[in-house]
Structures are given as structure tokens and as C-alpha cells.
Amino acid sequence: MVKIKNIELGEFPLLLAPMEDVSDPPFRAVCKANGADLMYTEFISSEGLIRDAAKSIQKLDIFEYERPIGIQLFGSDIETMRNCGEIATKAGPDLIDINYGCPVKQVACRGAGAALLQDIPKMVLMTKAVVESTHLPVTVKTRLGWDDTTKNIEDVAERLQDIGIEALTIHGRTRVQMYKGDADWRLIAKVRENPRIRIPIFGNGDIDSPEKALEYKNRYGVDGIMIGRASIGYPWIFNEIKHFMETGEHLAPPTIQDRIDVCKKHLDFSIRWKGNHVGIVEMRRHYSNYFKGISHFKEFRMRLVTSMDYEEILGILNEVSIFYGEEELLVKTKKAK
């Protein structure tokens, strides 16, 4: 049983990665329903929380069905992060996570996210401050290092464990790599094999199929896997991985109707949480992902991303159901002949 302090996550948990502008409550709802064991909020700016910025405050929203769930924070100032640890604790999550892995310029150039990989003593002090600010478990997500000459994750893991973190997620790239090239899990495995390490080590990077998840579990010995980009528009990946690990067999892929049903649930939650206008507008980024690889979908997508009327959108999705249902029936008829 994998545990983060007293939080039980099962034998081999699958974690939903915190993704900016993606892993909000509506998206988390469909991922939880499809097998995610532990989820995180979008990463939240410590400066935004201190300023009471509306966008940052809204990201603190969590719901009972999501548990266990962590609030992820990022920042460059130690005392600000300490204060935000206290603020996040009051929002009632199960744990607090610190982001030392975000590679994007707007974050790293401000001394936050992956920038802390260039200043490990400051990373340690900041982590210690957050640990001291809360009674909740504190976890960290980071990368192998800043670049190929500073892959210091083995030392980082020991130092962060020593000041009190309860789990560590490692993305198998450096900051310089961004998301390019293949993730290298060999150093993640070395951290896991270190006899000094007693906390769970989760691997992250490039897991996009049940076969790869099982292969990496067996090859690198991690305690669980965090999945990010592969879950966008495809929340079924969590249950597909679990089923494959248990049985060695694949679940049937989602049908068009499955995709439509989940898309509708996502849309409904988006509107309930954000209001009609914002909920519909922000849902637009998801339509292409839900129907990725489906032939002749461009016309439907264009209509979905230009409509501002909820009932009209439902009508378009119903047209999608009818169109592809008839297309599927036609294919079956041709095969029968």
C-alpha cells in the first residue's frame, strides 16, 4: 500500500498532473470518474494568493468527491510561500504540493518553478518554510535538474526528505529540455533505489499507454505514475492502465457516445463552476481533444467553438452522435456484405 503520510493511495497509484488551464475542477471531475487516484489543482501563484487575485483564489476550490487532492503552489519568495502554505491549508486539501518543475519562461524567469533547481539551498529553505506552515503532508514535484550538467535530483531528493516532505514526483527531463525529447527515467529509478529514501517516489513524463505504464513500473520500480498530457481529452487512460496492469488485456476504447457523454459532463460542470459565459468559452479548448483522431470532425468542431448557446452546443453534440452512429452502421453493413 502506497501512503503519503496517512493518505492511502492503493498498491500503485495513478496521479493526475497539475496542468495550467487544464486541471480545473471540471476536468478533475471526469478524471476522477475514470480512475485517477490522486489529483492536484492547477499550480497557484503565491504572489497571486497574497494579493487576493481572483484567478488564484478560485483555483483553491476543491470538492469532496475529488479527495484525496492536493493544492499546488509556486513562488520565488520564501516568506510568501510560508504564508501561502497557511492560506492553502485553510482551503481544506489533503496535502500541499510545491512546484519546482514548471519550465515555462514566465515562471522560471521570475525565480519560481524549475528556477529553484539552480539554487538548491533556497529550495530547501523554501520547502522547510512550507512544511512548517501546515499540519498537512507536503509533497514536491520537480525535474532531474536545470540542464545536463546539473542533474542533481539524487541529492535534492535526500535533502527534501530530510526537511520533511512526504512524497516526491520527478519529471524525467531537465528544465532546458522543456518538453522536448524523451523523458529519461533512469535517474528517477536511482532515487527510488536509494536505501536512504523512505518516501514514495512517483515518475512523470511520456506515459501515454497502458503498455508503457506497465513497462516503466517494472523497469524503474517507482511507487506510482503521474499522467499529464495523455489525459487531456482522454480521461479513460487511468482505468485503461489499471485494467491492463491487472489483467494484461485492453479495455475497449471509448465509443463516440462515450466521448460525447463525458464531454457533456465536462461542459455542465464548467458552466456550474465558472458561469455560463466563461464556462462555455473555456470549454472550447477541450473539444478537439475529446474527438481527436475522429475523421470528418472539423465542421462539427468549428460549430462547437463558435457557439455561445448551451442548448445549441448540446444539439451539435447530438448531431455528432447521430452522424457517427450512422457512419458506424454503414461500415458494419459493408463488412457484412
Rank of each mutant, 00 (worst) to 15 (best):
K292L: 09
Y220C: 06
D24V: 01
L314R: 11
I98K: 08
M308S: 14
L95C: 10
G315F: 05
A189W: 03
G172W: 00
Q177W: 09
E328W: 11
E240F: 00
A189I: 00
S288Q: 15
H135Q: 14
I7H: 06
M226Q: 09
Y179A: 13
G224F: 07
F323K: 08
T150A: 09
L15Y: 06
A33R: 15
V140L: 08
I237N: 02
H250A: 04
I4C: 13
I163C: 08
F297R: 09
V107R: 00
G35T: 05
I71S: 07
G205W: 08
I201A: 13
G75H: 03
V104L: 10
Q257A: 07
E154N: 13
I71D: 09
A213H: 05
V130G: 01
R51S: 01
A189T: 04
A33I: 02
L314C: 10
D97R: 03
T255H: 08
K264P: 00
K151T: 12
D61R: 14
W236D: 09
V107D: 00
A115K: 05
N194V: 03
G221E: 07
E193T: 03
A36D: 05
I232V: 15
P254A: 03
Y290G: 04
M1P: 14
L267P: 05
V281Q: 14
N276D: 14
G181M: 10
E8M: 12
M19G: 05
E319A: 10
R301W: 04
R198Q: 11
F63K: 10
V22T: 11
E299Q: 13
R272S: 12
S209W: 01
K190Y: 10
L187C: 07
C102P: 07
V138Y: 05
E42I: 07
Q257M: 13
D184V: 09
R198V: 06
L136K: 01
G145Q: 09
D77L: 09
L267I: 11
A91C: 03
L330I: 10
I153D: 06
K264F: 04
E328D: 14
E327Y: 12
E11N: 15
E154K: 14
T134N: 11
M226C: 10
I260N: 07
P235A: 07
I313V: 01
L214C: 08
L9V: 11
D162F: 10
K242W: 06
D148P: 04
I50Q: 07
I57C: 09
R284G: 03
F12L: 15
C31H: 06
A189Y: 06
I237E: 02
K190T: 13
G101V: 04
S76K: 13
I87G: 01
I69F: 04
I241F: 09
I316W: 04
I207L: 11
H250Y: 14
N152G: 12
F269W: 13
V22I: 15
V278N: 12
M283D: 04
F202K: 10
P235M: 09
G113K: 04
R173M: 04
N34D: 02
F269L: 15
G172K: 00
R51N: 05
I69Y: 03
G325W: 02
F43L: 13
M283W: 06
C84Y: 00
Q118P: 04
N6L: 13
S56R: 00
K5E: 15
E312K: 15
L16R: 02
R82P: 06
E64M: 02
A53M: 02
F297G: 10
R303A: 12
L168G: 01
D147M: 11
I241S: 06
S76Q: 11
